[in-house]
Amino acid sequence: MADALPLWSVVLLPVLLVVVTWATVAFDAALTARAAGGPSGVGAALAVPVRETARLLVGQRRRTVAADVVLGRVGGAVLPVAALLAAAVLPWGRLPVADLDVGVVWFNAMEVLAWAAVWMVGWGSNSALALVGGYRFVAQGLAYELPHMFAIITAALGAESLRVTDIVDAQQDLWFVVIMPVAFVVYLLSAAAMTFWGPFDAPVSRDVAGGAAAELSGIDRLVFAGGRWMLFVAAAAMAVPLFLGGGGGPWLPAWLWVAVKTAAVLALLVWLRRKVPTLRMDRWTEFAWVVLIPATIAQALVVAIVVLQRGGM
């Protein structure tokens, strides 16, 4: 970690993550307002997250009978922390806050913490609907973790390194999305599934009244929902260094390219959610097991052969 960002970046990282999350929520709110025919416009949309945050901050915490407060609170707090730790390996331009030599594995481990978190939140409020949401996420996570891992590993294989900056450097001539399109698509799908983003939002969907978050209110809901959004932003942003060449690009400085590409990926995923209804768990876990996993393994095999041909290792 000789050439990492200076120390102040550690303080700046949460701020930056919150700002990007804010912009994403505002974009989503703008699309919602347009669909519902309500007041639209940039100002109104930007105000939505602020208003919602303020409302939740002053809101009262709901208490349920015989709740497991310890697990519920810990689970809620783990989500934003995991998002933040995952975001630590994202390069802003050329360098991330922490350029770990096992960056992509670290990233994946932090995403997996969300499983435990969502289940704990679902369990914590001692409510049937919340627990159903928690269990749904465990099933979804199990089905999508393997394709997710294979997609990430394919990028690492192409660069012959687990370090995120090495993966970016390996894409100077050719973005990985070109030579491993299957892995890229699977990454986006499984990243949406791992952060229970629509159409994979069954764990928090409306038919179970908000699922794992059904009984949350006030600050608990703010931490859970905010953490979930931040995790989603981090997972989407990771697609940029893994497959889209990181900060590489003509004319503009690296950090601007990262911002532009991240915004594009986020916009795509936010837009995609509105196009499709929530997918049924049993159909799409099956899809993950019988289509996505073999596809990603085949993709990894192809990339491995290419690497060997190139005389790597």
């Binding site: 919602t32 669909a35 025919g37 939002d201 409306r206 038919d207 959610r273 509105r274 209804p277």
Partner: peptide, 16 residues
């Protein structure tokens, strides 16, 4: 029905 199916946009349109 659309709301339960998790399809927010058409549900919002139907409500409008």
């Amino acid at each position: 029905l659309l709301g339960v199916a998790g399809w927010a946009d058409p549900a919002a349109r139907a409500r409008r």
